[in-house]
């Protein structure tokens, strides 16, 4: 009996989501980014299509994060408190294909910056780079609803990815996205059912399915990564098997999550067995990103330039199989 490659055809197809809008499309971006569209498990080109490469974003802040790791600060010291400049650096030097603007300072406990001020920050970034934007909020419902509404309004036509809504707070922001034509991140706490439920709720309010990206909630390596990993594999399997309410691209945040763990911020002197801190901080984010890429992620928000470079290179390498064996 000769060997035959065991091919598993899927009936489902992951939705294709486009972020950003060029001037023809009513925005000001120089290009758009499209993710999704796969008809097979990640990187398996022998049994399906993967028309779009996973996209790599980097993140800038309206406020310097309280515990920003030293290993990262070395790369960003000059721009960390200037989101527009930092965005430029990420795009021009580190190859970011999208920029995420994190609006933490609008949180009432972290500065309570107003919606107008937040919109200003977004505007500045929009002016300084030409790549599509992700706008990243927080979990203070009342405040973020106000902020996102404003941001959606001032960026009307740009088709930003508004990050994020959850089951307990989706209506206001989703309505704003629909009114001003933005895409949305549907976040659910590491649970297939809840991910699906939120997508159903969004589609029940007629939110267009080609504008939804799932955030399964990223656990950093060593801090719940295994849950994220398996939930993503399950979401992707179900989506490909024909469950249209799970057939969406997925966004993950290896940068943000890794930047919060002890493993990227203690030195080798303190923890000799953990090895060199510079390397380790890049490794941690790389390993988080690469494993979740294997599980099906299409949009990856990175922090560490070295990790960014490495992941980008390996996404390309993983796509080398595109041309067939």
């Amino acid at each position: 009996m000769g060997f035959e490659i065991p091919i598993e055809k899927n009936s489902g197809k992951i939705a294709e989501v486009t972020i950003g809008a060029t001037s023809e499309q009513g925005g000001t971006r120089s290009n758009t980014i499209t993710i999704g569209g796969s008809t097979a498990l990640p990187f398996l080109f022998f049994e399906g299509e993967h028309p779009n490469r996973p996209a790599l974003a980097m993140e800038v802040f309206d406020k310097v994060p309280a515990k920003y790791p030293e290993a990262l600060l070395d790369y960003y010291r000059d721009v960390i408190d200037k989101p527009a400049d930092m965005a430029k650096k990420c795009v021009e030097q580190y190859g970011a294909e999208l920029i995420s603007v994190r609006l933490d300072e609008t949180h009432p406990e972290k500065g309570d910056r107003s919606a107008d001020e937040a919109a200003d920050v977004v505007r500045q970034v929009l002016d300084s780079v030409k790549v599509p934007l992700i706008i990243t909020g927080h979990s203070h419902y009342e405040k973020i609803n106000v902020v996102m509404k404003k941001v959606c309004e001032v960026t009307a036509g740009e088709n930003c990815l508004i990050n994020y809504v959850e089951t307990d707070n989706y209506k206001t922001i989703a309505a704003a996205c629909m009114a001003y034509n933005h895409s949305i991140v549907a976040q659910s706490p590491i649970d297939v059912n809840m991910a699906k439920q939120l997508n159903i709720l969004l589609s029940d309010m007629n939110f267009p399915s080609e504008k939804i990206v799932i955030d399964p909630l990223t656990g950093a390596l060593g801090y719940g990564l295994e849950y994220t990993y398996s939930i993503m594999e399950r979401i992707r399997n179900d989506g490909l098997a024909g469950d249209s309410m799970l057939a969406f691209p997925m966004i993950i945040n290896p940068g943000y999550e890794s930047s919060r763990v002890k493993e990227v911020r203690v030195t080798e002197e303190e923890y000799p067995d953990w090895g060199d801190m510079e390397l380790r901080s890049a490794y941690w984010e790389t390993a988080t990103a690469m494993s979740l890429l294997s599980a099906g992620s299409e949009l990856i928000v990175m922090y560490h330039p070295k990790a960014m470079e490495t992941v980008k290179k390996h996404v390309d390498e993983l796509y080398s199989a595109e041309s067939g064996n």
């Binding site: 990993y229 890049a282 390993a287 494993s291 294997s294 070295k306 990790a307 470079e309 490495t310 290179k313």
Partner: peptide, 12 residues
Amino acid sequence: PDRMAKASVGLC
């Protein structure tokens, strides 16, 4: 970092 990326994917 390249080794890290490749080993991660291999392990998964």
